[in-house]
């Protein structure tokens, strides 16, 4: 029963990791950019939700309605200006630029909002849990986040396979020059992919802020989890990212069961095992979406 509970809890937290990671995976799959500021964007989304939504007079729970579209727009603009310029130079520049962006964001948040931890309080509706057996507690909130993750991934998959823009994203991911020859403006498509990436990570950031406390420096550890989920699942595969997130969650739960200090270790060990045995990840193909 203990193991069953570990798996349940791992799946629940894995949904959050997948939501967090899918944008990272998309950016890499489409434009070969590892956005090192990905985790920080989630933190910024949390702060924006906390600081701005009172001005719009909407409840915290619905803050994502403002923040997610806003981040989509920011993502498009950041890609078309900052990231595209660095792509035009070379891949290494994109690492430096996004790393620099991460440093700037953390320090700007520290300056503006101090190092105090924040939380997005949504009242008690989601803080209850379902208690189906003696030691199993399923928090409604984690369940909702897992459901959101599945819905987001399914919608994204559907968008990529069934819409014209989605097909353009896949075409650009496969061969951007050939896509140009077919009439696709790859810079615009890069912008759209970045918009989706930023919007999903904003959603993940808000979910994170509702679950736990966050501070200006919370981005780094979340970037690590997202990165591990993507690599375990296989780069470029959206469902792989969900499975990767869940596998990471379960490994962390097992680690924490052995010793509460081993939570991160459990995940890192799985990450290393996957890298050693199956470096393309569980569902990895070469650069597919």
């Amino acid at each position: 029963m203990i193991w069953f509970n570990l798996i349940i809890q791992g799946i629940l937290v894995g949904g959050f990791y997948a939501l967090f990671a899918c944008g990272l995976s998309l950016m890499f799959g489409v434009m070969r950019v590892i956005n090192l500021a990905h985790g920080d964007m989630a933190v910024v989304a949390g702060y924006v939700a906390v600081m701005l939504t009172p001005h719009f007079h909407i409840p915290m729970l619905w803050s994502f309605l403002v923040v997610v579209p806003l981040f989509g727009l920011v993502g498009y603009l950041v890609q078309r200006t900052l990231i595209q310029k660095s792509i035009d130079r070379d891949p290494f520049t994109t690492l430096l630029v996004t790393f620099g962006l991460s440093v700037v964001i953390e320090n700007a948040l520290l300056q503006l909002y101090t190092a105090n931890a924040q939380t997005i309080s949504i009242g008690s509706i989601l803080y209850k849990s379902w208690h189906p057996a003696s030691i199993i507690y399923i928090s409604y909130q984690s369940l909702v986040v897992l459901a959101i993750a599945v819905v987001v991934l399914a919608s994204l998959q559907l968008f990529l396979s069934k819409t014209g823009t989605g097909r353009q994203i896949r075409a650009v991911a496969d061969d951007q020059e050939a896509a140009q020859l077919s009439g696709t403006n790859y810079r615009h498509i890069f912008g759209v992919a970045a918009a989706i990436s930023f919007a999903t990570v904003a959603l993940a950031g808000i979910a994170y802020g509702m679950t736990t406390q966050f501070a200006p420096t919370s981005g780094g550890i979340n970037l690590l989890f997202a990165f591990e989920a993507v690599v375990i699942g296989g780069i470029g595969s959206l469902w792989g990212t969900l499975v990767g997130g869940i596998a990471l969650g379960i490994a962390q739960q097992i680690g924490s069961h052995i010793n509460p200090q081993y939570t991160l270790l459990g995940g890192n060990v799985l990450f290393l095992i996957v890298l050693a045995i199956r470096p393309q990840g569980l569902f990895g193909k070469k650069s597919s979406l």
Binding site: R167, R170, A171, A178, S182, G183, T184
Partner: peptide, 27 residues
């Protein structure tokens, strides 16, 4: 319209989708 000496299809898309992207964007 141009073809490459070494064909460069969108490998992870179907044959039809390859042509469809061109019809929707190019045409």
């Amino acid at each position: 319209g141009r073809t490459y000496q070494v064909p460069r299809p969108f490998e992870h898309m179907t044959v039809f989708e390859n042509a469809l992207v061109a019809a929707q964007q190019g045409a």
